[in-house]
Design a protein around this nucleic acid. Structure first.
Lengths: 93, 93
DNA sequence: TAGATATTTAGCTATTTAGCTAAATATATA
DNA sequence: TATATATTTAGCTAAATAGCTAAATATCTA
């Protein structure tokens, strides 16, 4: 179940901040790491979790790997949240 | 930051299933526990985490404690998700 | 008040997670 | 090819999390 990965990925504040950064512009792994008081390997692992959840994409350009948002998963997330606004119904019909 | 509690609470499949159940109707702690292959104390802890995140309310009626959805937090969650649909902007303006 | 039912709290253990350092991999360039 | 830069992978440790059982708390009713 892919929504499980989505929520797991979103449960960490560092990872949500990474998404906030990528909302503005695509960034390399190094540029992302600069925004945090944390080692690059730690950020790399967070990026990997976000990638597994398909919340972000990666693309290598020479020495650099650029990360960007994947907005489609947010649409699925939106559908999930909407179920709880419209009372009644299973959300699966 | 309350959104942090929200996402932590939503990161567990059991807790999301509890929300699905409460979407249909208010239920007692015992009724909720019946839907899971898990002890009542374990369910009780999950309910407590959902309550801390203000995703649900509880109300005692005699021997029973009824749980119900609090839809207002889902609205905040919705705002958060929407930021990532409309590219550009910080979402804080 | 005593006993039954509903639920939570306390305390324990196994698993998962997030951080670190050191080493490995990939690319660019002299 | 050798060296430098960018990033990830591997392996470790401390802290957090989810499950359990046993005990405590709250309410109802005989």
């Amino acid at each position: 179940m892919t929504l499980n990965y989505t929520f797991k990925a979103l449960s960490d504040p560092t990872r949500r901040k990474i998404l906030d950064l990528l909302k503005e512009e695509d960034l390399t792994a190094g540029e992302i790491a600069e925004h945090f008081n944390m080692t690059k390997p730690s950020i790399s692992r967070h990026l990997n979790l976000l990638k597994q959840a398909e919340l972000i994409w990666d693309e290598r350009k020479g020495q650099f790997i650029y990360y960007s948002l994947n907005t489609t998963v947010f649409q699925d997330l939106m559908k999930w949240v909407l179920q709880f606004q419209n009372q009644g119904g299973t959300g699966n019909e």
